[in-house]
Design a protein around this nucleic acid. Structure first.
Length: 726
DNA sequence: CGGACAACTTAGGAAGTCCCCC
DNA sequence: GGGGGACTTCCTAAGTTGTCCG
């Protein structure tokens, strides 16, 4: 309620230059484990340029070709080399460490071109990070891209009210088109959506329009809707050339607006386009769905760029709300969105340094958790018996987060969809069962809406002590009361932070997700599997993670039909096999009778044919199972956000699977750092001796590893000090 | 401490593109 | 060679986390 009130003060002005790029503290070399085989430059903490970090080396950085690893020339040479040397020795085997130039000499022109493109890549992972929390030293960009303004409807397209043609004022008309465009969307069937829309729409009407238009039910948008449908049809029907031209134009615009110069390197921007106006589409039962999301003008936008760089030019006749130079943040532009009052940011693309570095760090943090996970688990099990209610609740909550990969669960406002995470679970979301067939004793049944109003349903057997605690927490409470009434995410996270520097609830999700992938791959990959089987194995492992994290998707609309098709194919195949079988039989008898070379050959051919057919049937059947199991599970989310890419890459290298089979182009760009540095030997957590694999058989959530710890964590690879901010 | 808020990560659906089969 | 399903990318909503302030 409170935070959303539109009266949010633009308090940004006050502190204008914000948190000043002060050098917080010179972090001393943190202690990488002594036995690291290779060490990462990342562990260095000195800023790239100069000690005090204020040298704005360049005035107006131009699109200069990307500086490749300038490691050698850096002033911090000594430290750097120390860090770099070990890197060198090992990865040479993956070839990429050699400068692209060396390689290209021996390659075909086509390949060379590819290599040259690659050369544009900023190999930031071979450089040092800023240690002072600074994000950049110089930053230049063109500002965000605005949509063209509203183009009124042509004169022959009409909106009707109560059967009557009504010509609306431009403002009211524009908002009307937002609704018309969504006419055949489910949203327009919802009361909340309609009410919110209608209320907001009326604010854009002239007085006369307002007196006329009083009932949404009497509004007829169909002609307008048809008009827009027709337009999309037209767009679809465009000739190849026209489409190509449009694409090229868009590419031109992207060239200009889609990149910035970040510390002298050209870096891709993620969302350089300002969000167009429209109707707010919340997920689930969002109280604000249907409200009008206003058009953003330059006057609403704050620009962030380097002090000495060229300030982006606002569109003609406009000016920016503010221009600031805050190098402690990563955004290039920001504005406040009117529906929820949130700040929106223009930030860099996932393939950029600033995002990549954080991503890498995230996984290092998760790996670090592995080193103290036993201790943490022992602690929370101990705390299940604590005299203090708060401690018990905290312990059970962490157990859920660890075992079930639940999110932290912040409190939410009245004017947001009612969803929960761990800390905000209510009595109504859990049921206790003494015994559930097929699950076990002391079963907790979860049923709640999580992020994006995605339902989480799970029945899990828990330790007796946990069960007892839950009974206790639920005593004398109403369904709408909080399960963990003494707990919130702040308490939880500050405790976790005490356990391990930088630890917070979400790290468990990353950790358990990546660990699961690693284990599943270790466990399921067969040495002699075919390429296809390998991919299948990978997807299986990926799926285990997606299930753990409850990453769902809507069942594709075409699912049933394409399933049917596949079944038919299988049947056909079976028929063919039957045929081949009888052929074989015949060939066999022929062979017996004739004993000729030709007959023998015929027999062998028939045999081979059958064999192939059976194989392909098997393949089809696997595919069907795969498809069925996958219909409502989204693999992409975990792949992109939770799985240490080095696990996948190492696996690819080890089993000779082309990385393209696993990662799309964009994903490869995002994970370039990992592709470059992970060798076949990389392992998410190293171990000595045998590892005990966790039982994931039920795959309905995971079975926390508290009963099964593997031998010994033992960082041997990335030393990494994971020195995040502190 | 609790609330507000800034900054960032994670999320699923829609739109767009690709590609495979008929 | 074109229709449609699968895969990819885009879009922006919805989370988490840490900090600041009273």
């Amino acid at each position: 309620m409170s935070k959303t009130s539109s009266s949010k003060t633009p308090q940004t002005n006050g502190k204008s230059d914000s948190k000043k790029p002060s050098v917080k503290k010179e972090k001393t070399e943190s202690t990488p484990s002594t036995k690291n085989i290779k060490s990462e430059p990342k562990s260095q903490s000195t800023p790239q340029s100069t000690k005090n970090g204020h040298s704005n080396k360049l005035k107006t950085p131009k699109n200069e070709p990307i500086v490749k690893t300038d490691a050698k020339t850096d002033s911090k040479k000594k430290v750097k080399e120390e860090a770099n040397t070990p890197v060198k020795q090992e990865p040479t085997k993956n070839g990429k460490k050699r400068s692209a130039a060396d390689l290209s000499q021996t390659e075909s022109p086509k390949k060379r071109k590819k290599k040259e493109e690659e050369e544009e890549v900023w190999r930031w992972w071979e450089e040092k990070k800023y240690a002072d929390g600074r994000k950049w030293t110089t930053l230049e960009h063109k500002g965000p891209l605005f949509e063209p303004g509203y183009v009124p409807l042509p004169d022959d397209i009409h909106f009707f009210y109560n059967g009557q043609r009504v010509k609306l004022s431009v403002e009211a008309e524009e908002v009307m088109t937002f609704y018309a465009k969504m006419l055949d969307h489910e949203y327009t069937q919802k009361d909340v959506f309609n009410t919110n829309f209608f209320n907001d729409w009326r604010k854009f009407m002239k007085e006369s329009e307002r007196t006329l238009i009083k009932d949404l039910k009497k509004c007829d948008f169909t002609k307008v809707a048809e008009y827009f449908k027709q337009k999309t049809e037209e767009r679809k029907a465009m000739s190849k050339e026209e489409k190509k031209k449009l694409k090229e134009e868009a590419a031109e615009v992207k060239k200009l607006y889609g990149f910035c110069i970040w510390d002298r390197h050209k870096q891709p921007i993620g969302n350089y386009k300002i969000e167009p106006p429209g109707l707010f589409r919340g997920r689930g039962e969002h109280p604000k769905m249907g409200m009008v999301k206003k058009r953003i003008n330059p006057e609403d936008v704050i620009i962030n760029c380097g002090k000495d760089s060229q300030v982006p030019e606002p569109p003609a006749g406009h000016k920016w709300k503010e221009v600031r130079h805050d190098n402690m943040v990563a955004w290039l532009a920001s504005w406040t969105e009117n529906v929820q009052g949130n700040t929106k940011y223009v930030m860099l693309n996932a393939a950029s340094r600033v995002k990549g570095e954080r991503d890498w760090q995230k996984y290092e943090k998760a790996r670090k958790l592995h080193r103290c996970i036993d201790k943490i688990r022992n602690n929370y099990m101990e705390d299940w018996k604590s005299k203090e209610m708060k401690v018990r609740q905290r312990a059970v909550a962490i157990y859920f987060i660890d075992k079930l990969a639940l999110r932290a669960g912040n409190e939410k406002d009245e004017d947001e969809a009612d969803t929960v995470g761990c800390c905000s679970l209510r009595i109504e979301h859990v049921k206790l069962h003494k015994d559930v067939e097929g699950v076990g004793e002391h079963v907790v049944e979860f049923d709640f809406l999580g992020k994006d109003s995605i339902r989480y349903q799970n029945k899990v057997a828990v330790e007796k002590q946990v069960y007892k605690n839950l009974v206790l927490f639920m005593e004398n409470k109403n369904p709408e009361d909080e399960l963990f009434d003494r707990l919130n995410t702040t308490i939880l996270n500050s405790y976790l932070n005490e356990c391990m520097d930088g630890l917070s609830a979400k790290v468990f999700r990353t950790y358990n997700a990546s660990r699961t992938l690693q284990e599943q791959l270790d466990q399921m990959t067969k040495k002699k599997d075919s390429a296809n089987d390998l991919i299948l194995t990978y997807n299986r492992a990926n799926r285990a993670v997606a299930i753990l994290c409850n990453h769902q998707r809507a069942v594709p609309k075409t699912f049933a039909k394409s399933m049917e098709n596949m079944q038919k194919k299988i049947q056909d195949k079976k028929d063919v096999i039957a045929e081949a079988e009888s052929e074989l039989k015949k060939a066999k008898t022929d062979l017996k009778n004739l004993k000729s070379v030709a007959a023998k050959k015929k027999y062998e051919t028939a045999e081979n044919k059958l064999k192939k057919l059976v194989e392909s049937l098997k393949k089809l059947e696997i595919q069907v199972t795969d498809k069925e199991e996958n219909k409502d599970i989204a693999l992409g989310t975990s792949k992109l956000n939770y799985l240490d890419p080095r696990i996948s890459i190492a696996w690819c290298k080890k089993h000779n699977v082309p990385i393209e089979k696993i990662y799309s182009k964009t994903q490869r760009d995002k994970f370039r750092w990992a592709i470059d540095m992970a060798t076949a030997e990389y392992h998410f957590y190293n171990y000595e001796g045998e590892i005990v694999l966790r039982d994931l058989s039920h795959l309905d959530g995971m079975d926390g590893g508290n009963t099964t710890q593997e031998g010994d964590p033992d960082e041997t690879q990335e030393p990494d000090d994971d020195e995040d901010e502190d």
